[in-house]
Design a protein around this nucleic acid. Sequence first.
DNA 1: GCAGAAAAGTTATTTTTTTCACAAAACAAG
DNA 2: CTTGTTTTGTGAAAAAAATAACTTTTCTGC
Lengths: 232, 232
Amino acid sequence: MCYICFVNKITKTKREVVALVPKKTVARLILYKRFLKQLIDDGVKNTYSHDIATKFGVTATQVRRDLMCVGYHGASRSGYDVKKLYDEILRFFINTEGKDVVLVGVGNLGRALLSYFSGGKSHIRVVAAFDNDEHKVGRVICGCRCYHINELKDFVDKNKIHTVMLCAPATAAQDIAVQLIKSGVKGILNFSPVRLNLSADVYIEDFDITMNLEKVMFFAGSNTGFEEKINV
Amino acid sequence: MCYICFVNKITKTKREVVALVPKKTVARLILYKRFLKQLIDDGVKNTYSHDIATKFGVTATQVRRDLMCVGYHGASRSGYDVKKLYDEILRFFINTEGKDVVLVGVGNLGRALLSYFSGGKSHIRVVAAFDNDEHKVGRVICGCRCYHINELKDFVDKNKIHTVMLCAPATAAQDIAVQLIKSGVKGILNFSPVRLNLSADVYIEDFDITMNLEKVMFFAGSNTGFEEKINV
DNA sequence: GCAGAAAAGTTATTTTTTTCACAAAACAAG
DNA sequence: CTTGTTTTGTGAAAAAAATAACTTTTCTGC
């Protein structure tokens, strides 16, 4: 039972329910899920909102707020049953779990990502890589076969792929992204430092290393040498 | 002249001014800066808030609000002088520009990042890498020399490094982060999938690949097959 | 059984961020 | 010179997100 639907006494599409969940809540729920998985592996049976909160540097209220969105109800005083809460979060992420992704652009960064996901540490599988360089096509890199980008549409159709990690160079990213969308891709994790201009029904998450590094540099700098008085 | 100080008729420390600028504005300003640099290279003299807005998928008002924080004033009707605006944004990021960073953890991801920054495409220089693996110490990887992590403190002191890209494995990340802080580091771009528990005066940006990929998978999934009615 | 404590769930409030709406400026055309 | 258009700058409103405050439940110890 989802509190949002409950209080509004409504039947909604999943899409509508998802739209009511704050984006940042989704991000935190993914982290909570990871933590709960670890607790299960460690044999921990119960946990509390303030446990989770401490782990991620947020408030306990925030955690409870977030958990309201997935529908599992803990018990007063004894907190959350780790296994049940985990299962309920999985249910919330039902469209995510077990799904595969592909990588496009097998440069240095692409290869590092293939390696990162090949270790079996993550539950996400990168099932294919695509590039337009004939030298890479046909090779198996970190356990992942590399195909020509022209084969993408077939592969996406056949394997019901929704999500792509895009590691193409900046100059090619937009064109490739258009091709991805034509192939039926619905979500892109964009590692290239350009904004992709695409139709609104595709979800794009920009993962801009340089921008984020500069952001850290800015705030790191503001921790030092920013004490002088100014009247800008 | 910064409008925040102006309207409040106050003299503040730079730190206080920075605190008044929304974090998201800082992120966008970095993107605007990049765009303006490109405009300069392309020989474009003037630009407008809606140009920048279209480029990044935000509203023109948002852009103007963001630019208020850096203090440069455009001209009604003729927009912004690209060069002057760029310079003013640089001035805002004065503590960031020209500063160097180091990388800690020379695994696959670390190497890919060294390669990424070695091409000279970015204006940020990664001037050293650190690892505790004796096999890596002393080697030069993508033009970047690798030192033992014990040499970090000296290097940071000598070269006035504030910012680190941390690519250590999850199990080691927290311990290494503590060591970084002891060495005087003020900002960490954290690629490892664990939250670092550190004192509040250090800026940490989590760059969690798996989490972000899952987020994309979730929203990509919500674009398909989420039309069924539910009453959760 | 009862008082007190600890925890979840939820409403209300506050804070932060974004958008709206419009004044002022500047240019263009007649 | 005047009128209309375009664009910036910004106060006010709205929306989104986070936090605080309060209620209820459940357990513990007496």
